[in-house]
Design a protein around this nucleic acid. Structure first.
Lengths: 347, 347
DNA sequence: CTGAAAGCGCTAACAG
DNA sequence: CTGTTAGCGCTTTCAG
C-alpha cells in the first residue's frame, strides 16, 4: 500500500490539505463535522505524517548521534543503554556508530553522522585519537557535542568522566592500607586521559603513603587486553623482587593477570593481590572474586545525554551555551582478590 | 554560524540555486569558471547539503531501525555491532532502541521508530511478546522487517535464527555420549521460539538415545537469570535421584547452576556436568571453564542486515519481495564443565 | 470555519 | 551552459 499523504485524504473529501492538517492536530477552529470525516478517512487510509517533511518544516530532527569505540564492550553498551533511555524520554532517537578504536574510522563516522543532520553528538574518543580537528569542524556548524569517558582537553565542549584519579587512588590506598607495599601497576596506553589519570592516582597514593615509585613495577598496555594482563603478570613474577599487589587499569587486564598468577602457582590474594577497574559482571563470578573500582557506564550515558539535550535546547532558544564538566565518583568494591584476610563473600 | 543553503551561495554569486546544485555535484554541463566560483564560496561558507531536504526530495532515508530486548546484554550488543558494520558499508545508519523485555515498550518503540521514517526494521521480540499485531501494522506500510533470534512464526517476514534445536541436540548428545544418562534441562520461558527449540532438541536427543524423559528433570525459568540457575540446581540436588548433568538454556543460567553445585560441595563435572548456551566470553575465564553452544551474535546481525537491505532494495525497485529464513548452525564448545575426563585446557 | 499561498532546502525536467 | 518551474509533504500566516 502506497503511503497516504495529506493531499490524498484532502482530495477524498473535496477539501484542502491545510484543513486536513489542522483537523488532525485538533485545532480549535475546525467544524466537528469535517473533523470527524477527516479522522475517519485518515484512519482508513492508515495515514501517518511523513516524518521527513515534518522535520524539514519544523527544522528539528530529534536525533542524536552516538559514537563509541566498540559497541560490544560491556562498558560501552551500558553507556549506550543509558543514553537511549534518557533521550527517548524526550522524544529523541539515537543513531549509533563505532570507531573500532581507529582514528581514521572515527573521523569517517562522525562526518557521516553529521551529514545525516543529527541535532547533537555524544562521543567517546578512540584510543588512537590525539588530534580533534574533526570535532572542531563539527562545532563550526554549531553542533552540540558532549564527550564522555575518553575525552579531549583541547576542545571547548562538555564532558562526563569517571573520577579515574580518585578511583585509582582509592584502589591503591586500599592495597597499601592492608600492608602491601610493593604495589605494581599495569597501565593503559599513553594518550587517553583516563589511563593517565589512573596512573596519576596510583603515583599519588604511593607518594602519600611514603612508598617509593619503582619504574620496574609499571607496565604499559597497548590494546588493554586480557592477554596483556597475562603477559605482564608473568613479567612481574620474573623480577628479582616481584611486587605483592597489582593495580590493573581494567578488569580484563586484572583477570588476565590473575590467570597468569594462578598458573604460576601463586595464590591470589595471599601471595599477590589484584584489583581491576570498571567492575564487570564477571568479577563476581570468578574465583577468587575480583576486586574492582565501580564506574557505572549507564550513569555516564544518562548524565552525558542530559548535558547534550540541555545544550540542544539552549541552541534552539538562542541562549548562550554553557559547557559543563562532570566528574563522577568511583567506588572501590573489595572482593577476594585484594583482601588479605579472606572475608565472607558478599553477594 | 548559521547553516549555509544553496540560495546563500547562489545569491552571493548572482546565479540561481539550481546551478549551484549542479556545480556542486559535478554535472558535466557546467562552465568550469562558475564551478570554481561555486566551490570556493561553498567551501568558504562551510556549505553542506541539508540532509532532510535531500532525503525528502529523494524519498529515501537510509536509516534502519533496530530493536533489541536489552542493549547491555552481550549477545545483543554483538548483534548490534554486526548490524552497524554491515549497513554502514552501504551508507545506511542505525537507529537503536530497546524493549527491556516488555511487550508494551516494544510496541511503543517500534511505533516511534516507524514514525521517524526508517526504511526497514531489524528486531528481536521480547520474551513477553506473544501477539505481533504491532508488526503487522508496520507491514501494511510496506516497511521491510527482518526478525532475528526471538522471532514470530505468525508473520510473513524474513528471519534469522540460530539452529537452537540442533545446538541443543548436540549439547545433550555430547553429554549422553559420555555416559551421563540422567540429564536435566533448565529451560527458558514458554513463548520464545528458541527456548522451545532448545527444549525440543533436548527431548529429541534423549529419545534418540533411548533415555526416558523425566518431568522432574525439567525446570522452567521466568527471567532466565543467574539466580534462577542457582535455585534450580539446588532443586535438582534435592531430588531423591538427582541428575548427573544439566543442560542450561543460557550461560547465565549454567553459571548460576555451577555456583550452587560448588556451594553444595559437588564437583563439576565429576559429580555433575553442566553445559550452557551462547558461549559468553566468561565461559573461558571461570573455573571450571564452562562448556557451551557457540552462536555468534555478530554473524546473526550481519546476516539479518543483509536480508533487510536486500528487501529494501527490492521494494525500491518495485520487485517482488521474497522472504528468507536463515538458520545458522550452532557448534558445541566442550570445556571442563561437561567433560568427564578433564583434558588439557584449550586457550 | 476553511481556502489560498508561501516556504522549509533541495533536485530534475524542460527550456532556451 | 544556465534559468525557470514544479514539487517532495507538511505547516502556518493571512484572508475571507
Amino acid at each position: 500500500m502506497k503511503r497516504a499523504t495529506l493531499r490524498d485524504i484532502a482530495e477524498a473529501l473535496g477539501i484542502t490539505a491545510a484543513t486536513v492538517s489542522r483537523a488532525l492536530k485538533g485545532y480549535p477552529d475546525i467544524s466537528s463535522r469535517t473533523k470527524q470525516a477527516v479522522l475517519a478517512v485518515a484512519d482508513q487510509l492508515n495515514y501517518a505524517p511523513h516524518p521527513l517533511a515534518v522535520k524539514l518544516r519544523q527544522q528539528e530532527y530529534k536525533v542524536i548521534g552516538v559514537v563509541v569505540p566498540d559497541i560490544m564492550h560491556p562498558f560501552f553498551s551500558d553507556i549506550v543503554s543509558g543514553i537511549v533511555d534518557v533521550v527517548e524520554q524526550l522524544g529523541y532517537h539515537v543513531m549509533l556508530s563505532q570507531s573500532n578504536e581507529s582514528y581514521e574510522k572515527e573521523v569517517r563516522v562522525t562526518q557521516m553522522l553529521q551529514a545525516t543532520g543529527i541535532d547533537g553528538l555524544l562521543m567517546c574518543l578512540s584510543n588512537e585519537t590525539v588530534t580533534v580537528d574533526h570535532l572542531r569542524t563539527l562545532r563550526e556548524y554549531d553542533l552540540p557535542i558532549v564527550l564522555f569517558d575518553k575525552i579531549s582537553l583541547g576542545l571547548d565542549v562538555s564532558t562526563v568522566v569517571t573520577n579515574d584519579f580518585q578511583g585509582a587512588y582509592d584502589a591503591v590506598t586500599h592495597l597499601l592500607q592492608q600492608g602491601y607495599t610493593r604495589v605494581a601497576h599495569i597501565k593503559g596506553p599513553v594518550h587517553p586521559e583516563n589511563s593517565r589519570q589512573r596512573f596519576a592516582g596510583y603515583r599519588a597514593a604511593l607518594a602519600d603513603y611514603g612508598v617509593p615509585f619503582r619504574p620496574e613495577y609499571v607496565a604499559e598496555c597497548q590494546a588493554v587486553t586480557h592477554a596483556e594482563g597475562y603477559a605482564f603478570a608473568q613479567q612481574f613474577l620474573a623480577l628479582p623482587e616481584p611486587p605483592e599487589a597489582i593495580f590493573a587499569v581494567t578488569d580484563a587486564v586484572a583477570i588476565g593477570a590473575i590467570g597468569a598468577l594462578k598458573e604460576a602457582g601463586q595464590r591470589v590474594p595471599e601471595d599477590m593481590a589484584v584489583i581491576g577497574f570498571s567492575n564487570w559482571t564477571v568479577c563476581e563470578l570468578l574465583e577468587p572474586t575480583v576486586s574492582s573500582v565501580v564506574q557505572s557506564g549507564y550513569d555516564i550515558g544518562c548524565r552525558a545525554s542530559e548535558l547534550l539535550l540541555r545544550e540542544i535546547q539552549q541552541l534552539r532558544d538562542d541562549q548562550p551555551r554553557e559547557h559543563r564538566h562532570l566528574v563522577l565518583n568511583a567506588a572501590v568494591k573489595v572482593r577476594q582478590s585484594s583482601q588479605r584476610t579472606p572475608a565472607i563473600t558478599v553477594a
